[in-house]
Computed example of a mutant assay.
Amino acid sequence: MNRLRVSVFFFFIICILFSPAHPVSHAAQIPVLTATAKQKPAIAVRSAGKSISASTSQIITLGRKGDIRAVKTRAGRATGSYLPSIRKKISARSAIVIDARTGDTIFAKNADVPRQPASTIKILTGMIALKSLKEKETIKVSQRASRMPRSKIYLDPRKTYQASDMIDAVLLASANDASVALAENIAGSEKEFAEMMTLRARLWGAKNTVCRTATGLTARGQQSTARDLAQLFRHVMQDEEFARRINRTKVRTSYGQVLTNHNKALWRIKGAVGGKTGYTNAARQTYVGMFTRGSDSIVVAIMGSETMWDDLKHLVEYGFKRKQQIQLVRAETEKKQKKEATLN
């Protein structure tokens, strides 16, 4: 009898050990996609366990962390390859891609974590100066402004300069001396100007941005987020004069100095229409900019990067692909809903 009990016990143990595991994990993120020649190619979109379908020529999977993988189908057979997760391809600690028209988030990674913004914050300095000064208004340069560290255009405190030239120096050459000179002429001091920057940031939808400098140089209590930078840049690019200035690769000042834009994306990445770079030891590499292809526009913000230009290329390509895929899903869903409405 005891031998029988022992045999039964071991039988159940063996059944448990060799039984199939419960199907979970990847199935929730990457469903198995199959199709036959008789089936219509379908689009399957799944996010957090929910899915919708519509007739189209692509299969799309939304992962739980926001990554999209797409497989094109031809005659019911997969011919493309999965789009690799963008998170694995970027070094940035924080990043976001938003729709420039609607402000909707397309991709986000730690987008609301506060970090030092470095020179990306100069988009506020430049925009406030554009709205506060006339182009040929005279700008004086204090000893303090002239002693700012690089990057700078080496302003001479014995001379005066035109406001237009100083704004270009801020937006293109990321000049710290020009930033402080503008701040002091507009608000009386850089501290007062920084408070103005913080207020404007709030008004323009950046709720987690606090400015302590006009330059973005590291300062205690100064912070922004990838989401705030993207929102600010989306706002300032609606101003035609700001957008015109920041789009130029080079400009000659009224006193003959040539200013070169630090934003290499203008000649490296298709569709770049304007952007602002930044770097400090504390912030690492930062960037915010807009890209347009056809009728689509996106804004990309990066903070805490070690490979900024590579990160930017990956995020721009990913952003446009995902935007197109989302639009495709919406269009097919609306089409299906209209068809069902007419039938009812």
Rank of each mutant, 00 (worst) to 15 (best):
R3K: 12
V8I: 12
F9H: 04
F11H: 06
F12D: 01
I14N: 08
I14H: 01
I16W: 12
A21W: 07
P23Q: 08
S25V: 13
V32D: 11
A35E: 13
K38R: 14
Q39V: 03
P41Y: 04
I43P: 00
A44R: 10
K50H: 15
A54H: 03
A54I: 03
S55E: 14
T56N: 10
T56V: 08
Q58F: 12
T61Y: 11
G63H: 15
R64N: 13
A70S: 15
K72D: 14
K72V: 13
R77W: 06
A78Q: 10
G80T: 12
P84S: 00
A92N: 03
V97Y: 01
T102E: 08
T105S: 10
F107M: 08
F107D: 05
A108Y: 07
R115E: 13
R115M: 15
R115T: 15
R115W: 14
P117Q: 02
A118D: 02
A118T: 03
T120V: 00
I121Q: 05
G126N: 02
I128C: 00
A129M: 05
K131A: 05
K136N: 15
E137I: 04
V141D: 09
V141Y: 06
R147W: 04
M148P: 11
K152M: 04
K152C: 08
I153C: 01
R158P: 03
S164Y: 05
D165I: 08
M166F: 07
L172E: 03
L172Y: 03
A173E: 09
D177C: 02
S179D: 06
L182E: 11
A187G: 07
A187C: 05
G188K: 04
S189V: 00
E190S: 03
A194E: 06
E195H: 11
M196R: 01
T198V: 00
L199D: 05
L199Q: 07
L199W: 06
R200Q: 13
A206G: 06
K207L: 14
T209V: 10
V210F: 12
G216R: 06
G216K: 01
T218C: 12
R220A: 15
Q222K: 02
Q223W: 09
T225D: 07
A230N: 05
Q231S: 06
Q231C: 11
M237E: 14
Q238R: 15
Q238E: 15
D239M: 14
A243F: 06
I246D: 01
I246R: 00
R252G: 07
Y255M: 12
Y255E: 14
T260E: 08
N261S: 10
H262F: 08
N263M: 10
N263E: 07
K264N: 13
K264L: 10
L266E: 03
W267D: 10
W267Q: 06
R268C: 11
G271S: 11
G274T: 06
G274H: 06
G278C: 02
T280I: 08
A282W: 06
A282D: 10
A283S: 06
G289R: 02
F291C: 09
F291W: 04
S295I: 01
S295R: 12
S297W: 10
I298A: 05
V299A: 02
V300G: 03
I302V: 06
M303W: 04
M303Q: 04
T307D: 00
V316T: 15
E317V: 14
E317L: 11
G319W: 05
G319V: 07
K321Y: 15
K323G: 09
Q325E: 15
I326K: 07
Q327G: 08
E340Y: 04
T342M: 08
